[in-house]
Amino acid sequence: MKDNLPRKRMVNVGMGILGVVISLDGLTMPFRSHEMTTIPVHHLLHSGMAAGAGLLAMALAANLPRRDRERGGWVLPAVLAPVAGLALMWPSEYAYLMGHHWLHFLDHLGIALCSLLAVFAAQAYVRGLGWPTLVYQHLERSQQSGHPAAGDG
């Protein structure tokens, strides 16, 4: 049991670092890439960034004290944050955002924060619910690739 503790901590730190790297890559993308991709590819990139933010959330939630009871206040953010995150993936605005890097950055920041909040909140509500939320969210965003905008090239 004692041997497992440092290993768990190492896994958490590794997961957190991986999450930060993926999230930072997604957040800084608007300043590094100025080419318009297709909407499905753009949404796939968002889903990758959301997964990174989710990993970071799981690493952060590992520090929450163990508790057998529900933390009921966390349910609403766990359910509503993905709604807000999806609303930020408004396909018809991408062309405008591609020309305004800071706005695009803020959009990515919002998507990443929504993912982070949803996964952290689910894990905070009841330990163990963070992982399914992370996977569901990742699938949700990647599935939005079936959502082409008018004039999607």
């Binding site: 993905p82 709604v83 408004w90 949700e140 599935q143």
Partner: peptide
Amino acid sequence: MDATLLGVSLLVRWLDPRVVI
């Protein structure tokens, strides 16, 4: 989660007819 995705997409389409699903 699937319904969230569908619901948000349809609401976005309702608010912005430029979006084609």
